[in-house]
């Protein structure tokens, strides 16, 4: 089984190809917000490096977010189109899972945090389990201070990963028992995506291209304003 993985939920764009033999090829580029420009050449590069023809791919895995909306959509639109054209199923994996997976060997509580812009972060908590990590909280959206208060309340040693942790490190620097992983763990890894997807593919946990939906965690502004107006209207 050959899996193509695509991730583009932060300012990074990544693709990887792998299967039973592990990850055969992976590439990541962070070049500002140029997801649409970079993604197709990156996919072509990893499949050439891995010496794989695209029709050999049996599953397309994609990062579902949360993250930068435009980047996320570039990856998901491309992944859906490829899965449809190749007539293969898909597997979606949340971006925060992809951040936590590379640090799975720690026994500490893992906190994955992605910069959500507007002074907020998308975050979730993870624990080590045999073969990987398990999410032990919901996906959340909040200010770095909200997250810092949650960390203050936990008795655990904590390892933080992700560009959200690094960008707002001021909020976490003073916390005891909390360590920030370095820049090398700042973005979701396409290799992790292929590894996690492979495990799910063995259990046939596929979705069809038209069923796969992004994880936004934030409503469009217009809808937020509309709801607020609606509620105010009712209150008056």
């Amino acid at each position: 089984m050959i899996i193509l993985g695509i991730e583009s939920s932060t300012q990074q764009v990544g693709a990887a190809i792998g299967g039973h033999e592990g990850v055969l090829s992976a590439a990541h580029t962070s070049r500002g917000r140029r997801h649409a420009e970079l993604l197709t050449p990156t996919i072509d590069f990893v499949r050439r490096s891995a010496r794989i023809e695209l029709h050999e791919i049996s599953c397309v895995a994609v990062d579902l977010g949360p993250g930068l909306f435009t980047g996320l959509r570039v990856g998901i639109a491309a992944a859906k189109a490829m899965a449809h054209a190749l007539r293969v199923p898909m597997i979606g994996v949340p971006s925060l899972d992809l951040l936590a997976f590379p640090v799975r060997h720690t026994s500490r509580l893992i906190v994955a945090a992605i910069d959500a812009k507007r002074g907020e972060v998308f975050y979730a908590f993870y624990r080590q389990v045999p073969g990987g990590v398990q999410r032990v909280s919901a996906h959340q959206l909040g200010s770095p201070d909200d997250l810092a208060s949650e960390l203050l309340a936990t008795p655990d040693e904590v390892l933080m990963v992700g560009d959200g942790a690094l960008r707002y490190h001021d909020a976490f620097d003073g916390l005891k028992r909390v360590e920030l992983a370095d820049q090398g763990f700042a973005h979701p890894s396409a290799s992790s995506l292929v590894q996690l997807a492979h495990a799910r593919a063995l259990r046939e946990q596929f979705v069809a291209a038209w069923e796969l939906a992004p994880l936004y965690l934030r409503k469009p502004d217009a809808e937020i304003n509309w709801t607020t107006r609606d509620e105010q209207g009712r209150a008056e």
Binding site: T40, L54, H55, R73, A77, K80, A85
Partner: peptide
């Protein structure tokens, strides 16, 4: 609209690559 355009462009390039 740039966000909308990129959805179509990304899908189109992916299809061109596969085919």
């Amino acid at each position: 609209l740039i966000g909308s355009l990129l959805v179509g462009v990304s899908a189109a390039k992916a299809l061109a690559l596969v085919w």
